[in-house]
């Protein structure tokens, strides 16, 4: 019991993934700044931002107070659960349970759903535009992502358990070393980019266009919780990709290297692309990405 609580609250759950995620967020801001030929913020900037938000007033717009204030916690809970489940398999070698991959797929949609609920409860027209875009984005990227996960599962004798995925790859080599693996990895990477709300798929939060969109009415503590959820996702999703596709060597050094590598890919995609419109991203995910994911699935069935 205490061990489980420790797993989810301290390591590798809430505290650990929040710290790692905020640091990864700093890497993102620093690299972006260097690409702009700027100096960029100091390493503690994201921690300072969160700390500052805790001291600010929380303004609740007229309307659904409980929903508005409760929504951030739903997303945080989902992200923390995923962080604990992925982290304990990867770092402490625990077994997890049969079917935890499916549970993770469900939990990963919670942060997006909490954003949508919060945005709708705020009664702000710009927030509702952001919320509707978020809904469309979730519908768009879930399809190719799930297909690519199914492809990976088929390559691993149909298992749906993270520890089996890791064990299989430890003996037979990483999935990314095969054709179907690398196709599925590309699809999953872009879907994660959209899940994190990074450019080019940040239409729901477009700062310059709808002023923060879904987050427009949030201030103080709830805003800090949304930022923390983002940070935890930023720490967790690369680890999930590592488990799914790069699971051969899970010694600490290699895990860190793979983590930094995937973060670098995120930041590079973010900085070399403009924001796409929401209809363009739907067409992108339901068109080319789904076709590539289906190709990966077909290749996985014939064993490539």
């Amino acid at each position: 019991m205490i061990r489980t609580l420790f797993t989810y609250i301290v390591f590798p759950g809430f505290l650990f993934s929040a710290v790692v995620g905020l640091l990864a967020g700093w890497i993102d801001r620093k690299v972006t700044a260097r690409i702009h030929w700027r100096v960029g913020p100091p390493w503690h900037q994201n921690f300072t931002d969160i700390l500052k938000l805790l001291g600010k007033e929380t303004i609740v717009p007229p309307g659904r107070k409980v929903t508005f204030l409760g929504a951030p916690y739903i997303g945080l809970l989902g992200a923390v659960c995923v962080a604990g489940m992925v982290g304990r398999v990867l770092f402490t070698g625990q077994d997890g349970f049969a079917g935890d991959l499916i549970v993770i797929l469900y939990l990963l949609t919670l942060p997006a759903i909490s954003l949508i609920i919060g945005a709708s409860a705020s009664r702000n027209p710009l927030a509702s535009i952001g919320g509707s875009r978020e809904i469309k984005l979730v519908l768009a990227y879930e399809l190719p992502f799930i297909i690519s996960v199914v492809a990976i599962s088929l390559k691993t004798q149909g298992t749906l358990q993270l520890s089996h995925l890791l064990g299989f790859q430890g003996e037979a080599g990483s999935h990314i070393a095969s054709i179907s693996g690398i196709l599925a990895f590309c699809v999953a990477l872009l879907c994660m980019q959209a899940k994190l709300g990074f450019v080019p798929f940040d239409a729901s939060e477009a700062e310059q266009e709808i002023m923060g969109g879904v987050l427009i009415e949030y201030s103080g503590l709830p805003l800090a919780i949304f930022k923390l959820t983002k940070a935890i996702l930023l720490a967790t999703l690369p680890l999930l990709l590592t488990v799914l596709f790069l699971g051969k060597d899970t010694s600490p050094l290699f895990v860190v290297l793979k983590f930094v590598g995937i973060i670098t890919l995120f930041v590079l995609i973010k900085n070399t692309n403009p924001r796409v419109r929401i209809d363009q991203s739907i067409r992108f995910f339901w068109g080319p990405m789904t076709v590539v994911a289906l190709a990966a699935l077909g290749l996985a069935i014939v064993g490539l």
């Binding site: 700027r38 931002d49 002023m211 427009i216 949030y218």
Partner: peptide
């Protein structure tokens, strides 16, 4: 802009008044 780069000091321009300091 890169010449002055206020983000060094954590200063950011934001779009919503609810986030303003």
């Amino acid at each position: 802009t890169p010449r002055f780069d206020a983000e060094r000091f954590g200063i950011q321009l934001i779009g919503s008044i609810r986030h303003a300091d």
